[in-house]
Computed example of a mutant assay.
Amino acid sequence: MDQENVTATLTVPAPAAKVFAVLADPTTHSAIDGTGWVQQAVERAPLTEVGQIFRMDMYHPNHPNGDYQVANKVQVLDPPRAIGWLTGQEKDDGHLEFGGWSWRYDLAPLGPSETEVTLTYDWSAVPQFIREYIEFPPFGPEHLSNSLHHLAEIVSGG
């Protein structure tokens, strides 16, 4: 596969500011994800600045420990148009190390009560040594679309 990112787009029946507020709230991420991998936010504060770190408790059956934690670093924050983060982990010495993959949501208002949301998962910066033990993308092609449908349900109150 030459392409090193995947995207999905969905029109969400909510204003961009409301969609952005949900995405900037780490406590909603497990419901948006829908795979069962994202368990819960460790830091529950809203995402408000580039460089902010927020950790998530995770679970994956193929992970050596099953349960693990990721440290995400906000990379893009342009309310209410774009939000994105790099995913990594905290090493034993407290140093944060990022694997080279990122999540980004781009929001385009289509009117006062609709927003086109594009979700991009990009792994173009993943070094070869990580690619040797993690296949990218690490989920099926339906995952991004499913996540956007979950987001739509959350912002519409359903």
Rank of each mutant, 00 (worst) to 15 (best):
86 L>W: 15
12 V>C: 09
43 E>F: 04
11 T>K: 07
104 R>T: 14
83 I>T: 04
103 W>E: 10
131 R>I: 05
132 E>N: 15
144 L>K: 00
152 A>S: 15
46 P>N: 07
113 S>A: 11
70 V>K: 07
151 L>R: 00
129 F>C: 03
117 V>H: 02
81 R>I: 03
131 R>A: 06
43 E>R: 09
15 P>T: 05
149 H>C: 00
141 P>S: 01
97 E>D: 15
122 D>Y: 01
48 T>I: 13
148 L>T: 01
93 D>G: 11
21 A>N: 09
96 L>E: 03
81 R>F: 11
86 L>Y: 13
129 F>V: 05
114 E>R: 11
134 I>S: 12
52 Q>I: 03
1 M>T: 12
80 P>G: 00
12 V>R: 03
14 A>N: 05
131 R>C: 07
152 A>I: 05
157 G>Y: 08
74 V>F: 07
108 A>P: 08
96 L>Y: 09
152 A>M: 06
34 G>N: 04
132 E>D: 15
133 Y>L: 11
153 E>N: 14
61 P>R: 11
144 L>P: 00
31 A>W: 02
15 P>G: 09
3 Q>A: 07
32 I>F: 03
24 A>R: 02
152 A>N: 06
56 M>A: 09
56 M>Y: 02
6 V>I: 11
2 D>T: 13
84 G>E: 01
29 H>I: 07
77 L>S: 00
45 A>Q: 10
114 E>S: 13
38 V>C: 10
85 W>N: 02
101 W>A: 07
102 S>Q: 15
109 P>W: 04
93 D>T: 10
121 Y>T: 01
38 V>G: 01
154 I>C: 10
12 V>D: 03
113 S>R: 15
85 W>R: 04
95 H>D: 14
50 V>Y: 04
56 M>C: 06
43 E>C: 03
73 K>A: 05
100 G>N: 06
74 V>H: 06
9 T>D: 06
61 P>M: 10
143 H>C: 00
122 D>V: 01
114 E>P: 04
14 A>I: 06
28 T>I: 07
39 Q>A: 13
34 G>Y: 01
140 G>A: 14
55 R>Y: 08
71 A>N: 09
94 G>C: 04
87 T>F: 04
136 F>K: 02
88 G>F: 10
21 A>Q: 08
146 N>Q: 10
69 Q>V: 15
56 M>V: 14
38 V>K: 02
